[in-house]
Nucleic acid binder design. Structure first.
Lengths: 196, 196
DNA sequence: GAATATAAGATACGGCCGTATCCAATTTAG
DNA sequence: CTAAATTGGATACGGCCGTATCTTATATTC
């Protein structure tokens, strides 16, 4: 007779998040369904709804677990401008990869349809991008290129905000956009003369 | 016997958008349904889906028609900083009004759940906020406070991006946030010394 | 180790989505 | 004025959502 083993707690959550991640890879956010994830994880909707209020939260949980920014190489090129451009460039490359790998051919789908607040609070309050920016500033300050490295939170997260806005709005991240963001917005702030 | 008049084209669209707007006011985005709007407009889903691909687009259309930024008073206080703060302050007031009026008590709902790209392209490419910012810059330039008024598009739309990010992420727009955005981000850009 | 509490899993429900299909009113072409 | 082409309207369908309810396996407690 068949064994009736029941997964619980962490084990179950892991199975669900893994299934969610795979579904996301295979189908894209738009086409992922809660029921589909439940089925793929060999459980039922009920269990998922007991833990996450909706698809967005579930996917965010999966992203948090598996969707780490991969193999990012901290630049330190010797100039803040180049560091920032390098960072943006790597993001653009990542975006390209995502659009091929994650949504393998089939769908012209995008991250586009995640819901607002979720993503924002995830990316901004989460230290993700902030952790990438701060070192660049530390380097620049050490070189004397900028006057100090302890900028307000809102400034440190600004590159992330810009990136997000660009990607979501334009669905792409062109080199032109990258240099504009750096030269027209970020550098003027970081290089601004002290308050007068 | 009853008349069987059929609305067409513009007349029909107007009726639908009006219904959509009213539903939005009454129920909030989250709880608005396509079927509900169709019913309220005395027509059917089919007709709506022939014109708009999904709820987001329909609501955006309604917003474009009825959701104009109301009674905005151009500041011109004599300093760019005060102009910007004034603008942000009016936005905060508007936000407050929306959260009471539009979502009348009942729901702790928010704009939050509109979908990404839609809103972004609407707010950023649409000239809405840009049209508010440019005059401020013209004034400042005329006063000699800033060196020029013809900034890159990306810079002119930045205040809007910041506002949107703040509202969507934090669901509020505190005075502290306003001054930080102005003093830490916008002013440093506009007052930056010429490229060196 | 039995009793109790907790959490998983199954099932069912009403509601809305988005599409397809068909019919009927109104416009346009001839 | 009639025929053809549009476009609105009705209905039906499968699919998923989100909730509620019930049962049954596993953990916890005594």
């Amino acid at each position: 007779m068949a064994k009736k083993k029941r997964r619980r707690g962490t084990e179950l959550v892991d199975a669900i998040l893994t299934a969610a991640w795979e579904q996301l890879q295979a189908k894209g956010y738009q086409n992922v369904t809660i029921e589909g994830i439940a089925a793929a994880a060999a459980t039922t909707k009920t269990v998922l709804y007991r833990r996450w209020p909706d698809k967005a939260h579930l996917i965010i949980a999966a992203l948090s677990k598996f969707g780490n920014l991969p193999d990012y190489q901290a630049p330190d090129t010797g100039s803040l401008r180049d560091d920032l451009l390098n960072l943006f460039g790597q993001m653009a490359a990542l975006l390209d990869r995502l659009q091929e790998e994650t949504l393998r051919g089939l769908l012209a789908d995008r991250i586009q349809h995640l819901e607002f607040g979720e993503i924002f609070s995830h990316l901004n309050t989460g230290e993700q991008l902030k952790g990438l920016i701060q070192p660049l500033l530390d380097h620049a300050a050490a070189r004397g290129e900028i006057s100090h490295a302890d900028w307000p939170d809102r400034v440190v997260t600004l590159p992330g905000v810009l990136l997000l806005n660009e990607i979501l709005g334009q669905q792409t991240l062109t080199p032109a956009a990258q240099t504009e963001m750096v030269d027209d917005i970020l550098l003027p702030i970081f290089l601004a003369r002290p308050a007068q």
